[in-house]
């Protein structure tokens, strides 16, 4: 028996790998689904602040991620763009990450076509520029200096919806979908802290905890961030809220993924329990021998 506990404690990690793979593949292949309960919290705050934007306001949406975090951030981006475009909010897209620009384009074109929105009147994609914090600081004084043209090289001045948009202060809200550096902290530092433009957004689940301090609300003062979507759960929350409010919103991929997620979590937790059982059994034996 003691041998069993010892072997269990030092199990080859490749066995864990196989079980994790199965935990994800099987629920996906069988298309399991769980209900998503959404209560008050950062996801709801974010949804509400986007939902309360009046028609014709202008939102800057920065796609600060790349394909490696696509599974988490892309479903959010789709749901948010869907939301903005169906409520007549004008959308200016940009990216602090090079590959973000084309990811944005993919979503914008598809959703704008399906909802009959018009490029350069309802939305524009300015593309990617390097520089992170430095670039954001530059946008604070001049959008045009940093983005002389949009993604398809149309000069800034020839884009009708950008009339009157000269710098970050001219936006009603900034939404950043952020996979890391540069991302949320930089937008908060410049746009929210220095310029006072409301900032909200989504991030990978991993980085969400470090942004919790930005969410704290005190009476009579704006929080550093309006709200936050964390990872796939955040995306699923947003999808659920969107569908609750606008029944015609198409179903997203985040809700489906939550089932696989749950099973994989269970597998990891079972392993943690097994590891501790083995540890405790061995320790008891050692104490018994003494």
């Amino acid at each position: 028996m003691a041998d069993f506990w010892k072997r269990l404690g030092e199990i080859d990690r490749r066995i864990i790998f196989v079980l994790i793979a199965l935990a994800v593949l099987v629920p996906l292949a069988l298309k399991l689904a769980f209900p998503i309960p959404v209560g008050k919290g950062p996801s709801k705050d974010f949804f509400d602040s986007v939902d309360s934007l009046p028609p014709e306001s202008v939102v800057l949406m920065s796609f600060d991620y790349d394909p490696s975090t696509k599974p988490e951030l892309h479903p959010m981006a789709i749901a948010i763009v869907q939301h903005l475009m169906s409520t007549d909010v004008n959308l200016v897209a940009m990216a602090l990450w090079p590959q973000g620009a084309s990811l944005a384009q993919e979503i914008l074109v598809e959703i704008s076509d399906s909802l009959g929105r018009e490029q350069y009147h309802d939305w524009v994609n300015l593309g990617y520029k390097t520089g992170g914090l430095v670039l954001i600081a530059r946008l604070g004084s001049s959008m045009k200096a940093a983005f002389p043209t949009d993604l398809s090289e149309t000069p800034y001045g020839q884009i009708p919806m950008l009339d009157g948009i000269q710098r970050l202060c001219d936006f009603d809200m900034i939404i950043t979908l952020s996979a890391g550096d540069p991302g949320i902290p930089h937008w908060v530092m410049v746009a929210s802290d220095q310029l006072g433009v409301p900032v909200g957004g989504g991030c990978t689940a991993v980085s969400a905890p470090q942004f919790y301090p930005y969410l704290q609300r005190r009476v009579g003062e704006r929080p550093q961030m309006e709200g936050l979507l964390g990872g796939l759960r955040g995306a699923a929350d947003y999808e659920a809220l969107l569908r609750r409010k606008y029944a015609q919103a198409p179903p997203g991929t985040a809700i489906a993924g939550m089932a696989a997620q749950s099973v994989a979590h269970l597998v990891i937790m079972v392993f943690i329990v097994l590891g501790n059982l083995s540890y405790l059994a061995l320790r008891k034996r050692k104490e018994g021998q003494r």
Partner: peptide, 10 residues
């Protein structure tokens, strides 16, 4: 727009 309440002259 008729519902705006501010303008920045730069």
């Amino acid at each position: 727009s008729p519902v705006s309440t501010s303008y920045r002259d730069t």
